[in-house]
Design a binder for these strands. Structure first.
Lengths: 245, 245
DNA sequence: CGTCCTGTTGACGATGTTCAAGGGGGGTGG
DNA sequence: CCACCCCCCTTGAACATCGTCAACAGGACG
């Protein structure tokens, strides 16, 4: 395979950008797309596994992820970045790495800020992204805090499937999900072996499979039950005991 | 004790607001404080344990926290809200509850948005808060994913101490921290009993205590070592193994 | 053909949960 | 003033979940 076979180039103009309907600039009407041209400071194509050093960019093709290393040499994956996502790399905090061969559009923070100062709609779109990020982090926190391994895997698969569905990258039965089991494990606070076992259980029960870069959902109800804590007590049962106000 | 002994009223004017230097409106110079008066839509005093239903507000006195219930009747505490923090309650997602008797200043989202549209500095301040929130959620995620119980407790205590220090609510040796062990447990994904044991270990080793609403830090170095994974291999040791790029 | 990466499985031990019980302090009502 | 109760903290023991260690299989690639 050629070294560049999977590298998807970006279109020359934002007007032709396939991910713009799902991205920061979705609020700029097609007629005004010319105005944002100067916010783009460049494009970049990177290979799977490459570190990404640009400080603010929009994913165009491929997946990336943010992570931090723990002093004992393990990783915590903080978030996955899909086409259309705005990614900000804060100098000191997290690393960003291409998960697959990827291409993205680098922005000038200075010019973006200036434009947002003049266009409240764009600023709102930016804020919207931050708010969504925070909400997703909160959901993950709940996963790591209160779900067991199977629930965490189920929940993450559903989250990714939902995000892909919204941008047309999935159908009801599945999607392209290029995660290795190590990514799952490092995102969910599990060992690779345990993530594997959780995935094996899903496969064995005919719920879902993750194989060769593809997620297949065979039984969405069962998957949701797992993610939402299977075997619930009836909803009208007792209220939370701890911290009862 | 009177039913209102701990309810701290707010000053009538933002000009006299004690938390403004640490809050959203810190960017508005004293001379222009009059302009933001109309963004305030009211104040509220609530008792410990009360649910807070207002959709956007700035904590003035006391602590609050956001949480979600799991279908099996447990809680995940998502974040703690300290004086000066801007809190947004999203209808469907998380509940917000007063942790102590608290008072806060309710904002009008509509007028806040309008003002931010005219004042990019205020918009930046708002964005700054969202970015900080996200960073804090990421740190918590790392805690729940990769730290053991002692490390999680140590890390959260340090986080809270740092946040309090920045707003003058702490000295180097400790701070008022009104958390019950159940709050710690529900924030850190632990059972109350295990959180208790972790806290007991900190106390026994002379590292820190959390007692009667007060955090005392006896050995900050040891606490940081715990939070940063005690017994680290030397920094120049091996790189992360999983997901090696 | 050998090597590396990824996935897989088993055995065992560590960490954390659950269940059960009890203690202390501050309120409230007799 | 005392008795009682409730909330919070604390401890122990049995048990479950998950991590670690070790081994191996299959496929891609050189």
């Amino acid at each position: 395979m050629s070294r560049n076979a999977n590298l998807t180039p970006l279109p020359g103009s934002c007007a032709a950008c396939a991910v713009r309907p799902f991205a920061l600039f979705r609020v700029i009407p097609q007629a005004r797309v010319g105005e944002i041209a100067r916010i783009r400071s460049g494009v970049r194509l990177v290979r799977a596994g490459d570190a990404i050093l640009d400080s603010i960019f929009t994913m165009y093709a491929g997946w990336a992820f943010s992570w931090t290393a723990t002093p004992d040499g393990r990783r915590q994956v903080l978030d996955f970045h899909l086409p259309g996502d705005l990614v900000e790399r804060s100098e000191d905090a997290a690393e960003v790495e291409a998960l697959t061969d990827s291409s993205f559009c680098i922005l000038s923070r200075e010019r973006l800020c200036a434009f947002m100062g003049r266009d409240p709609g764009l600023a709102m779109s930016y804020v919207d992204g931050l708010t969504r990020d925070r909400a997703r982090m909160r959901e993950r926190l709940t996963s790591l805090g209160r779900r067991d391994a199977a629930g965490r895997v189920a929940h993450l698969l559903l989250e990714l499937h939902g995000r892909l569905l919204r941008r047309g990258g999935a159908d009801a039965r599945g999607a392209a999900v290029p995660l290795k089991q190590a990514h799952l494990a490092d995102a969910l606070g599990l060992s690779v072996e345990h993530a594997n076992r959780a995935l094996a259980a899903l496969r064995k029960d005919g719920v879902a499979t993750l194989n060769k870069g593809r997620l297949e959902i065979m039984d969405r109800t069962a998957l949701e039950d797992l993610a939402g804590w299977a075997g619930l007590p009836p909803p009208e049962s007792l209220a939370p005991q701890t911290l009862a106000g």
